[in-house]
Amino acid sequence: MKFLIALINGLSAGGTYAIIALGYTMVYGIAKMLNFAHGDVIMAGGYMMFVTLTLLGHPLWAVAAAVVFCVVLGIVIERFAYRPLRGASPLAVLITAIGVSSLLQSLAQILFGSATKMPVKLQISGAFKIGSFDIAYSTLITLAVTVVVMAVLTLFVNYSKTGRAMIAVSEDRDAALLMGINTNAIITITFAIGSALAAIAGYLMLCKAPSLSTTLGAMPGIKAFTAAVIGGIGSIPGAMVGGILLGVIESLSYSVPALAPYTDAVEFAILIIVLLVKPSGILGKMRREKV
């Protein structure tokens, strides 16, 4: 039973990782860049929720406002920081992304100070009881949101015209251009989707533990990036599998007293093992070098 509870908690934590990892992996697959600032978009969404709650009071408004705000933020970042570097060296793009990340954190610090905010209205307390065990409602909500996000995204990517265009751009940008696909527009849409998912992930984190600081997105961002790499960066199902797997491993490791203090180490060890066995990640494709 204890194992089952740990598993459910792991699936839920993994769901949040997966939702964040989807943002990394879609941007990587389609724009061919590592959006190092992705975690900070989560944080920006968190502050937007905090502000909206103060002004309007209802969590639903807060989540909606954060989604809209993050979408705009993601589009603006892509348009003004990354697009001018299209075709530049990957290193220049990565450094720019790190710059955007610290810019967002600094801005948040200037606007809101460094004290941790407690948007307690976002919290979902209470738990579902099974015998003597509890499963928090926030855990169940996270699971439900994860399932919905994955289903909608999978349907969208595989069955909508825009989704197929995204696959085409990720496979071969020039060939996509020759089909008449406006690849810049597709990249913008990708950033918009990734950022909306970041806002949702931010809410899922804050509804569990309403503690908001400028580094809200930092650790989950790194974990989710790890998950994306484990699953195979660039692969949408890979991000889902990698996220869930990482969450489950994390939760199970926590539940074993001897391993609990080393949980982060366990997770990164898994990353290294996966990369040794399959360098492209679980569901990743081997990169074909351009001829």
């Binding site: 496979e171 020039d174 251009l177 020759l178 008449g180 696909i181 494709k285």
Partner: peptide, 21 residues
């Protein structure tokens, strides 16, 4: 991306089909 709708289409070297579609 605006060329093809003019009626001019380019079949690139090496085919460049979308493998995963």
């Amino acid at each position: 991306h605006k060329i093809v709708s003019e009626g001019l289409v380019h079949v690139p070297e090496g085919r460049r089909i979308f493998q995963s579609l």
